[in-house]
């Protein structure tokens, strides 16, 4: 019989669980935080200026950006079954909303770029490794779910880190693997500092990006959604007569009722 095969499978399982348990203790708490939907994240990339902040709590997600180190600009917001984007009209902050089931509809105005706003709500690619099923994050069909491959000690730019590595396969239609994305999660004293993303392809490795985690914790400040205050809210442009006449339909104001949650 195939006892050898069965034994081999059991051994492989044992190896895998053994390896999985070697993940940094902090990794699990970060995973829980991201998956349970209550966190505030601030990040940037090496070689880039400006910060992006993602605040998620009570089923809502707010993304804002700080391009210059001073002001936070609203980028996108999602709550309930709607997605929101922001713009200025006569120097006044305004918002537009779209029901989620209309995302991807052919009647949306291309000027409003709802696809971009949907993407803006997603976790940075590197962190989505810890929360692969994130509601707002999508992955190309060619990319397989990440697998933890091992831990090590690493010195990066003169500092010592504990490193967890995850691998995602890039698959092709023939069923083969045409390359791999590797993510090195760098922890310092149990705190996630950086994530390096590499492409492994044709026997070569190439550093694609380094995510710098400025802040990531599971407490959301009381006033995290306070910037959504009394903003006139209009309906998304759906190519109907109101759009032809250039008279957007006001739906109410964004702020009061949402902050009251």
């Amino acid at each position: 019989m195939n006892w050898k095969k069965i034994a081999a499978v059991f051994m492989a399982c044992g190896l895998m669980t053994g390896a999985a348990s070697a993940q940094q203790p902090a990794a699990e708490s970060y995973q829980n935080m991201l998956q349970q939907g209550k966190f505030q994240l601030e990040y940037t990339y090496e070689g880039e200026s400006g910060l992006t902040r993602i605040t998620t709590d009570k089923g809502m997600r707010l993304v804002d950006k700080q391009p210059d180190g001073k002001d936070w600009n609203l980028e996108a917001f999602a709550a309930g079954d709607k997605i929101y984007q922001f713009y200025y009209e006569d120097k006044k902050q305004c918002a537009k909303s779209l029901p989620l089931n209309l995302l991807g509809s052919s009647s949306l105005s291309p000027d409003e770029r709802w696809d971009k706003k949907q993407q803006a709500l997603s976790l940075p690619d590197e962190l989505s490794v810890l929360s692969w099923q994130d509601k707002w994050t999508s992955h190309p069909g060619s990319l397989s779910a990440p697998a933890f491959t091992g831990s090590s000690q690493r010195n990066v730019d003169g500092a010592d880190y504990d490193c967890d590595q995850y691998l995602c396969d890039i698959r092709n239609q023939a069923g083969g693997v045409s390359g791999q994305l590797a993510y090195n999660f760098l922890y310092h004293e149990g705190k996630l500092m950086k994530v390096q993303k590499y492409l492994l392809h044709q026997g070569q490795e190439q550093l694609l990006a380094t995510l710098l985690v400025v802040k990531l914790d599971g407490t959301v400040p009381e006033d995290a959604f306070a910037s959504l205050d009394n903003i006139p809210l209009y309906r998304a442009d759906l190519g109907d007569i109101n759009d032809l006449l250039d008279v957007p339909v006001q739906e109410g104001t964004l702020g009061g009722s949402i902050n009251a949650h």
């Binding site: 190309p140 060619s142 890039i170 698959r171 092709n172 239609q173 023939a174 069923g175 083969g176 045409s178």
Partner: peptide, 12 residues
């Protein structure tokens, strides 16, 4: 292109 050059998830 041959299947080995097309990412999985695209139409076959």
């Amino acid at each position: 292109l041959p299947a080995s050059s097309i990412p999985a998830g695209l139409p076959v």
